[in-house]
Amino acid sequence: MSRAPAGRLRLRVDPVACEGIGLCAHVADRVVALDRWGYPIVDGDLDAGAAVRAARRAVRACPRRALWLEPADQRR
């Protein structure tokens, strides 16, 4: 596992809570893609301010509260 620079954030999804509604990708397509079944793919650390802002929009938009931000160097 590569160690991310201190302070960098990562977007995570709880796949149990997620119901594939897709609002996250709608408001933040910069950091969220949908797979062919409509579930979000949120791979990768957020490397720029704009990406972090998009990720926060996605977190706020989710009606299932399935998304969150965490330090990128945290053990999964």
Binding site: C18, W37, Y39
Partner: peptide
């Protein structure tokens, strides 16, 4: 429980 598993 998880979409990618249930459909994938």
């Amino acid at each position: 429980q998880c979409g990618p598993c249930a459909f994938g």
